[in-house]
Nucleic acid binder design. Structure first.
Lengths: 161, 161
DNA sequence: ACGCTAGAATAGTCAGAGAAAGTCAAAAGA
DNA sequence: TCTTTTGACTTTCTCTGACTATTCTAGCGT
C-alpha cells in the first residue's frame, strides 16, 4: 500500500509531465489529500530536493504559492554550462563521445566513468528513430554532465545513491 | 517437523508462485508464524540471497515493506544475466536505483559511477511520456550494466573511449 | 492622496510520536 | 559444531501540530 507521500509525489509529477515546472497552493493540496500542510513540505524535501534535480521556489502571504522547477542547469560552472550549451537539445553519437573524451582529458572523470557514460549514450541504448535518439542522447548526457560537475564542485562523497 | 525457517521459505515461494516477485510486511509475516520479526530477516538472508538468485528491496517506516524479486530461472546464471533479466524491457526509476545500489554494495562500481548511472536513468534524463520512459530507462540501464561487467570480467583498463 | 498599521492569508521549520524494517550477539536446538 | 531463534537496540521513514515568518490588503489618521 502506497503511502500518502508516494501518492502526493506521483500527483505532482503527473502535474509536471512534459512541462518543466508546476505551481501549486500548499494548503489546497493538503486539503485535497486531507493531510497537514506541512506534509507537503515533507514530500518536497524528500522527493523534490536538489539532489533529485528540482528547485523549489515559494512565496508566503496572500496569493502565495509553491513552484517546483525541474533543473536543467546548475548556476555555477563555466565548463559545465559551455558543455551543456554544446550538447543543446540534441546531439549525435560522435559529438557526445568527443565531449566525454574531453572530460577524460581534463581528468574530470575516470576511464571507467567515461566508459559508463559512453554506454549510456550509445546507439543501442536508445531504442528510437534516429532523430529522436539525438534528442534523448542530449537529455541523458546533460544529466550525466550535471552529475559529474556536482561532484567536482562540491568535492563531496555521497553515500546515498 | 521442518524448521520454522523452512516453512517460511516455502510459504514465501508459494506466494511467488508463477510471478517473479512478491511484496510483504515483515511484521505481519512474523505474526503469522508467531515468531520474532528478525526471524524473517534470517530466512531472507539464508534463502533469498543474491547467490540464490533473489534481490531484496525494502523500506522502513510507515507503509514499509519487503519485496523479494526472483531474478532468474536457473541458479547457474551469472549476476549480469540475472540483472539483465531483472531489468527486462522496462523498469521504473525506483527499481533501477535499487539495482544500482546493489552494484555499489557488491563493490562492482564506485560511488561516483553509481551516481553517474543514477543520473542516466533519472526521470528528467528521459524526456518522454512515462510509459516510454520505462522502456528507455531499461535500454540505457542494460547497456550500462554490460559495460560494468565488461570491466569486471576482463579486469582491464581501457584507454580509448 | 499617502503612509502606517493591524489582521488575514499564506508558507516554513522543527521536534516528537509512531510505524516499520535492520543489526547483532547470545541463547537454544539439531 | 553449525544452524536457528530470539530480543534488545538502532535506523529510517512518515505524519502531525504548535509555533514562526512573510506577504498582501483594507482601513485609519493626517
Amino acid at each position: 500500500m502506497a503511502q500518502l507521500s508516494d501518492t502526493i509525489e506521483k500527483f505532482i509529477k503527473d502535474l509536471m509531465e512534459e512541462g518543466t515546472q508546476v505551481e501549486l497552493r500548499r494548503n489546497e493540496l493538503a486539503q485535497h489529500f486531507g493531510c497537514a500542510p506541512s506534509q507537503i513540505n515533507y514530500v518536497l524535501a524528500t522527493r523534490f530536493s536538489v539532489d533529485h534535480g528540482y528547485v523549489i521556489e515559494s512565496r508566503r502571504g496572500g496569493g502565495g504559492y509553491v513552484r517546483i522547477v525541474r533543473m536543467h542547469e546548475s548556476p555555477e560552472g563555466n565548463l559545465l554550462s559551455m558543455l551543456l550549451q554544446r550538447v543543446g537539445t540534441e546531439i549525435d553519437e560522435d559529438s557526445a563521445v568527443a565531449i566525454i573524451k574531453h572530460l577524460l582529458d581534463c581528468k574530470l572523470v575516470t576511464t571507467n566513468e567515461a566508459l559508463l557514460m559512453r554506454s549510456a549514450v550509445a546507439q543501442n541504448a536508445l531504442a528510437l528513430p534516429i532523430s529522436a535518439k539525438n534528442v534523448l542522447r542530449a537529455a541523458v548526457l546533460r544529466n550525466m554532465l550535471q552529475q559529474v560537475f556536482r561532484n567536482v564542485e562540491r568535492g563531496e562523497k555521497h553515500d546515498h545513491v
